[in-house]
């Protein structure tokens, strides 16, 4: 939308927005310099520079072990949520059976239900079933619940913009339905699939409340250990952890964002 008011006349607006952007962006980045501090204080700017807090991170079983747990859980969640979520989105897109809107609403509903309620519910189910509390499988199942809406919403939008008759053509030429889907439909939806997988991975990697309720000890995720450390003893190792988390959770979406906008521009 273009505007009829000159840019000079709304300079005050741009200044205001600049301040808000500063408030949004700067605090997230302050952990980076603090993580290279040479002292134990969390002051900014740091008194001197060193990499000792990264050495502390990589030298402690508590951090390395939990990073490994987080990565494995996030990977498992990514696979489980994308496979089941794509299957469901495909079915919801292709046919108009009864219950269709009810199923769709159910799959998206974890987005609207407060995380603490989902966490308490999962804790209850695991406590009843037995064998899932304090396990990687339990964490993966729990995280899949909160990752599901992201996969379903992303894939539904992808299917919406895709011409399904191409799959029909492939099937009419003799491909089985599964083969037609895997070789014709899915490759053309690669950006939606990549986005869905990335979101599922990140949702799991970031998730805290479910992890707090259903896991502890050796199956603690990185976010859970970070939370506990933040509450008890704060030191710059946390800044190193935060910087690593910052890189892990913002660089992949950034790359995807740039790649998709670029390819959209080429298509246009």
């Amino acid at each position: 939308m273009e505007s009829h008011v000159s840019h000079r006349n709304r300079l005050w607006l741009y200044v205001l927005v600049g301040l808000v952007v500063f408030y949004l962006v700067a605090p997230a980045l302050i952990v980076v310099p603090v993580s290279f501090s040479s002292t134990t204080s969390l002051s900014f700017p740091p008194a001197g520079w060193s990499t000792r807090w990264y050495e502390a991170f990589f030298g402690q079983e508590k951090w390395i072990g939990s990073l490994w747990v987080s990565l494995r859980v996030a990977f498992g969640t990514m696979i489980l949520a994308t496979v089941t979520g794509i299957a469901a989105s495909y079915a919801l897109h292709m046919s108009g059976f009864r219950l269709r809107s009810a199923i769709r609403a159910t799959l998206v509903s974890p987005l609207a239900v407060p995380a603490i309620l989902i966490a308490v519910g999962i804790f209850f189910v695991f406590a009843r079933l037995g064998g899932l509390l304090n396990t990687l499988h339990g964490l993966i199942l729990g995280h899949t619940v909160v990752a599901m809406p992201f996969v379903v919403l992303t894939m539904s939008a992808g299917f919406e913009s895709y011409d399904m008759s191409q799959e029909m053509v492939a099937r009419s030429l003799g491909a089985t339905r599964f083969k037609a889907f895997m070789t014709v439909t899915l490759p053309q939806l690669k950006f939606s699939v990549a986005t869905a997988m990335l979101l599922a991975f990140l949702v799991s990697f970031d998730e805290l409340i479910i992890s707090l309720m259903v896991s502890s000890g050796p199956v603690s995720t990185l976010s859970r250990v970070t939370f506990a450390t933040l509450r008890d003893d704060v030191d710059p190792t946390l800044a190193a952890v935060s910087t690593l988390m910052l890189v892990m959770t913002s660089v992949p979406p950034l790359i995807l964002h740039i790649v998709t906008t670029r390819s959209k521009r080429e298509d246009a």
């Binding site: 952990v31 933040l230 910052l246």
Partner: peptide, 12 residues
């Protein structure tokens, strides 16, 4: 960015 990271930033 993780909410946990941003919360820690505000603590600093």
């Amino acid at each position: 960015t993780s909410g946990l990271v941003r919360t820690f930033s505000w603590l600093i």
